[in-house]
Amino acid sequence: MKQSILIIFLCLSLTAFATKRALLIGISDYPAVRHTGAGWAKIHGANDVNMLRLNLKKQGFKVTTLIDEKATASRIRRAFEKIQIEAAPGDLIYIHFSCHGQPVEDYNGDEDDGWDEAIIPYDACQIPVKGVYSGKNHIIDDELNLWFSKLRKKIGSTGFLYVVVVVDACHSGGIDRGEEYEEEEEVFVRGTKTGFSLSNKSYVPRLDTRANIPIKSEKGMAETCMLEACRAYQSNYEFKQNGTYYGPLSFYVNKVLMRHKLSSDDSWVKDVKKLMDNNPRLVRQNMVIQTTKKK
């Protein structure tokens, strides 16, 4: 999983009594932090959640949202515990992250490049602050993968998990204004090119250019499909539509799902990728699809 982290979908084939469940996490206004450099820039993750919530409710999903100050690390963790307890075989589950993302120094040695990826809750700092913050509110990919594995086992082979991550971090350089942006527009980038490290280690992104990445599966586990807004070495730029800023992946996922009913058939994902690829304003980022399904 990339740090940018950031939208997760689990698609499960439905049984007669299956339930559609969605957990949407979006942060726009991170709190001001008195420690220089420890805070996060304003983005518009809440707009993504408010847009998707209406669409998913129309499709019959039981939707839980965590927005801004409600999207703390403890509340996110409790929400995952709750959905794991309530989930049943055959459920269709959609999980969405629209917030900042950051690479975090790997301390257990399970990452080849020495870095984990993390989503950034409302109450996480961007840099370590001695005696105040050492990273406990960063939710790293190891923890996320454990949650997802438990969910996939709980809903079983008749279920499906979708994960959409639009938390991708900025690794490719400064927040420059490209020609594809209108002159009056501000430029908002989700994430940071600076890694979170207690040892002051410098982060260098892995240059993985794959657009489709396979995910391993086990017998009895639900299949899963994860969508990411850009590659690990790229930046995830927001864009403005009808006067409102959105994450482009969130916007196009919602647009496609307005005409496609979510199910274990993930063919609609190709339509999202086509829209992303054909937008000239998104030439600096490439959508990534991770899936257990063979294409």
Score class of each variant (00 low, 15 high):
R177T: 01
I93Y: 00
I7R: 06
K153G: 10
D110P: 01
N236H: 05
M226I: 15
H171T: 08
I8Y: 14
K270L: 13
L207V: 15
A18Q: 03
L275C: 06
Y237K: 01
K153Y: 05
V253A: 12
I120V: 15
D265P: 04
P214Q: 07
W147E: 11
F61V: 09
E69D: 10
R78S: 11
K150I: 06
V104R: 04
K2R: 11
V253R: 08
L23G: 13
S28D: 09
I25V: 15
D113S: 05
L52Q: 14
K154T: 11
W268M: 12
S4E: 09
Y203W: 04
K153M: 07
Y245T: 06
K274Y: 09
W40C: 12
E143Y: 05
A124V: 08
S157T: 12
A38G: 03
K255A: 14
L56Y: 01
R210E: 12
E183K: 14
D91H: 02
K136Q: 15
T15M: 12
S267P: 05
I140C: 10
K70R: 10
F196K: 02
K293S: 12
N55T: 15
K154Y: 04
K42V: 11
N108D: 14
D29S: 14
V165R: 05
D91S: 02
P214R: 03
R53E: 10
K273L: 04
K193C: 08
R53M: 06
E111C: 00
L56I: 11
